[in-house]
Design a protein around this nucleic acid. Structure first.
Lengths: 196, 196
DNA sequence: GTTAATACCTAGTAGGTACTCAGTAGTCCT
DNA sequence: AGGACTACTGAGTACCTACTAGGTATTAAC
C-alpha cells in the first residue's frame, strides 16, 4: 500500500542525473549560496545523507552540475560549428539554442554574477569559461576585423546582457529577434557578404 | 582603558549610513542569500540586535540599501542629462560613472541576477528598475530610430554585459573604451552628425 | 539635576546548515 | 539460494540563521 513504491532506489547514474537536474533548477532560482542540500534531497525524493552519498559535499554537487553542463555545451558547440559556416551563423545558433533552455541560461546568469567574488566555489570555473569563450569568438573573428579580441568581448557582453533582460521579461523581449538586430550592427562591417 | 571608546554610539543617521555601506560591500561579494546579519553587524562593530534596531529585519536592510542607491542614481542621472546633450553622451556619462564605482556595479550585477526569481525580496524592485531604465532610453531615442524600444534593450544589454565582463577581468577589459566602441556601432546610423 | 528618548547589549528561541556514523534493504552475480 | 555490493536511511553533531524580550547606559532637553 505504500504509494511511493514507484520510486524505489535508482542506479547511480540515473540518480545522479536526477540530482543534477533538480540542482540546476534550484540554483537557477536561488543561486548557490541560497541552495540547501535539504531542498535538493527533497526534490529527488531522498534524504540528505542519501544525496551526499552521491555527491560527497555541497561543493561536489556544484561541480557535478558544472561538469555536466560543460559536456553538453561542448557537444552543442561542435554541432553549431559543424552546421554553420560563418561566425555570425554560429552566434545565431548559440542564441537560438539558449532561447530554448531558459532554465540553464538562468543557472549560468545567476552563477556568473554570484561567482564574481574570488571565494565562490565556481569562481575559477567561470573565469576559465569566460576566457575560453572570448578566445573562441576571437578565433572566429580573426580574419574579419583588426580587433578580434575587442569584438569578441562585445559579442559576449551583448549575448549575456540580452539573456538577462529576456529572462526577466520573456513576454516582451524576443531573444532571437533582439540578437538578430544586434548581430546586424555588430557584423555589418565585418561579415563580407560572401554568404549570399 | 577600553580601547573601543573611539567608536561609542553613533547618531541614527550616521550609523544607518555605515550599515548601508557595509551591506553594499557584503552583498556585492556574496549576494543577498549569502548575506548574514552577523557579518553586517561585525562589519559595523555592533551586535546583531543592535543592527536590527536600525533596520528591523533582513529584508528591511536590503530595502534600505536599494532606497539609498536609488536616490544616488536619480541624482547622478540628472547630472548626466544636464551636462550632456545627446543620448550617446548620456550613455557615455553613465558608463564613465560606473567605471569609477565597481563595488556598486557589482552589487547591482549580483542582485539583478539573484532577483530574477519571483520570490526574491528585490524582485519587484529590479523589475520596475529595468522597465524604468528601458523607458528612459527609449524616450531619448524616439526621434533617432523607428524602433526606440528595441534599441533601448540593446543598449541596456550591452552596458550590463560589458560591466559583468569588466568586473571579472578589470585588468584586461577597459569598460569605457569597450563602451565607446560599442556606442560607435549602436549609434552609427542613429545619431545624426548634428553634434559636430 | 532630573526626565525623557534612544542607541545598544545580554540572553534566549526556534529552526536551519552541512555533514558523519553505523546500519538496513534492495539488486546483481554466481 | 547465498554472498557481495551499494543505494539509501535514522539518528546525531556542532554550528549558524533571523529574530525577540527586556534591560542598560549614554545622550539631549529643560
Amino acid at each position: 500500500m505504500t504509494l511511493r513504491r514507484e520510486r524505489p532506489r535508482l542506479p547511480a547514474a540515473e540518480r545522479r542525473r536526477q540530482i543534477i537536474d533538480v540542482t540546476t533548477r534550484l540554483i537557477a532560482e536561488r543561486g548557490f549560496w541560497g541552495l540547501s542540500m535539504q531542498d535538493v534531497a527533497d526534490g529527488c525524493g531522498l534524504t540528505v545523507p542519501g544525496l551526499l552519498h552521491h555527491v560527497g559535499s555541497k561543493d561536489g554537487l556544484l561541480l557535478a552540475v558544472l561538469d555536466h553542463r560543460d559536456e553538453a555545451d561542448v557537444r552543442s558547440l561542435d554541432e553549431a560549428i559543424g552546421d554553420a559556416s560563418s561566425a555570425r551563423e554560429i552566434c545565431a545558433a548559440l542564441v537560438r539554442r539558449n532561447a530554448n533552455q531558459p532554465e540553464i541560461v538562468r543557472l549560468f546568469a545567476v552563477l556568473q554574477a554570484e561567482s564574481l567574488t574570488p571565494g565562490h566555489p565556481a569562481h575559477d570555473y567561470f573565469a576559465a569559461r569566460q576566457q575560453k569563450t572570448l578566445e573562441g569568438f576571437a578565433r572566429l573573428l580573426k580574419d574579419l576585423t583588426p580587433d578580434p579580441d575587442g569584438v569578441a568581448v562585445r559579442i559576449a557582453a551583448m549575448m549575456d546582457g540580452l539573456q538577462v533582460h529576456w529572462l526577466r521579461n520573456p513576454a516582451e523581449i524576443d531573444l532571437v529577434a533582439q540578437w538578430e538586430a544586434a548581430a546586424e550592427m555588430i557584423f555589418r562591417d565585418l561579415d563580407p557578404p560572401t554568404g549570399g
